[in-house]
Simulated scan of single mutants.
Amino acid sequence: MRAIGKGSLSSILAIGLHITRVILWIMLGAVTLALIILPFAPVIADIFAGGDAVVFDGDGLVGAEDFIKVSSAFVTFAVMLFVVNRLLEILKALRFGSPFVKENADRFRGIGYALLMGEGAKFAFGFLALIFDADVELNMTFLSWLAIVTVFVLAEVFREGARMKEEQDLTV
Rank of each mutant, 00 (worst) to 15 (best):
I23T: 06
F127C: 04
V157E: 07
M1W: 03
S11T: 13
F125T: 06
G110I: 00
V79M: 15
G60W: 00
G7C: 03
S144Y: 07
V54S: 10
V84E: 10
K165Y: 06
I12T: 09
L35R: 09
N104T: 05
D133M: 08
F82Y: 14
L33H: 05
P39L: 04
A134T: 05
K69G: 03
I68C: 02
F48G: 07
L143F: 14
S8Q: 01
I90Q: 01
V172L: 14
L130T: 10
K122R: 12
V31Y: 05
A162E: 07
E167L: 11
D135M: 02
A129T: 01
S144C: 00
K102H: 11
F142E: 10
V153T: 09
L33T: 06
S71T: 11
L130Q: 12
W25S: 11
A3N: 09
R95H: 14
F158A: 08
K6E: 15
I44M: 14
E156Q: 13
L61F: 13
V136P: 02
G161L: 04
A78Y: 11
I148E: 01
A162S: 13
T76E: 08
I68D: 01
I37Y: 13
V70N: 06
Y113P: 06
L9M: 09
I19L: 14
I4P: 02
V62G: 01
V172A: 13
I68T: 04
L170M: 12
M164L: 15
T20V: 00
I19W: 09
L88C: 08
R109V: 00
L38D: 04
S11K: 09
A64M: 11
V83I: 15
T20M: 14
T141R: 02
F56T: 03
F123K: 06
W25Q: 10
G63D: 11
I15K: 15
D59S: 14
A45M: 07
G60F: 04
V75I: 14
L35C: 12
E65V: 00
V136I: 04
I47Q: 02
F108A: 07
A64D: 07
A134M: 03
F96V: 00
I148N: 01
V172W: 09
A121N: 02
D66C: 00
I131A: 15
I12Q: 12
L128P: 03
V151A: 04
M117W: 15
G112K: 05
F158H: 04
A121Q: 02
A134D: 04
V153L: 13
F142V: 11
